[in-house]
Design a binder for these strands. Structure first.
Lengths: 102, 102, 102, 102
DNA sequence: ACCGTGGTTAGCTTTC
DNA sequence: GAAAGCTAACCACGGT
């Protein structure tokens, strides 16, 4: 089986090749599919693990009295390029002024 | 600074402790905060790396003719407990029949 | 067909009832299902319409030079209870100070 | 105040215009901003109302024994173009066969 | 090349 | 407090 619409697996067979030869050269799309999926599944597992670690750190900080929501805000700010951050902040202040928000 | 309302960082100081001692024992909430955030940032970086790896595998499969959307469906199916999957499928068929969907 | 495990739509028919009577009393779970889904589909359509309207307003504002991202921030701020907003802001400033963020 | 980078709000004032004139011609970007935001807020409210209605229908169906998750699947299927649906399904079956999933 | 769209992921809310 | 559903932001893709 081939993915779809690709030109691999030429069906003309000008030169006869055994199934085994095809499998070895790969040709074997099933195998490509299976291995690709397994790699994704393994990586997804790994990703999930890291996500759990992150959650743990948040929990610890929360247990020590920190507010999660605010922590996330801080992280967002730290992640921003300082210049962009300034720019963004200025813009926000301008709009606030425009609307009479103290 | 303490997270909020917790009673850590006792200010009574019945027994004098040097600043250094406090810092080591921790006491120092600023430090806890800073280190927590840094750990989160490091883990987030790591997570992003894994996510990119996953994206790469999808790209490879796509290049080999596989349809990404369908691949995701397959992954979802494989992730399900077989029994749940059966159950869910049966239910779906029931509803479809109920609605006259072929 | 019934939703699940309920005994409505008794098929014994000790007392003959016309199909019409059943339909009216309802009994007919298929009908309930079909009508429920149709109501949801209609409402979803409606919701989509409103979402499109919102998008249009954003587009207009953007065309007049406003920055969409900042507009969303403003909307978030306006949506918050003023007290919560103050509280939240104070907390953020505290953490920033704690981290030496100007 | 102007959104950004547009040339409205000319500061040269070659020809004096009263504030009132500007406001009427509009020029008044503050007003544009304020009204735009209010429209969005009103529409958002409306959207929320419709979303709640949808939730209600789901609740009713659930109370009558239907499984919400499956209902959502059905809705997804009904929303799809029949041809796409067939196509998608075929592809899925192909991949499943490829992987030996019954 | 950019805009608009759809799909995915993260975050917040509510329920159990 | 954990888990699920809903909402909003993000991102990559395809169309123009």
């Amino acid at each position: 089986m081939s993915g779809f619409g690709d030109n691999s697996g030429d069906t003309e067979d000008t030169f006869a090749v055994s199934d085994e030869q095809m499998r070895l050269a790969d040709g074997n799309a099933d195998e490509i599919l299976r291995e690709g999926l397994e790699r994704i599944e393994r990586l997804t597992e790994e990703k999930k693990g890291v996500a759990d670690d992150i959650k743990d750190v948040f929990s610890e900080l929360k247990a020590k009295g920190f507010d999660t929501k605010t922590l996330r805000q801080i992280l967002r700010l730290r992640a921003m390029n300082p210049d962009d951050r300034k720019e963004q902040d200025m813009l926000l202040e301008t709009y606030k002024a425009s609307l009479g928000m103290e």
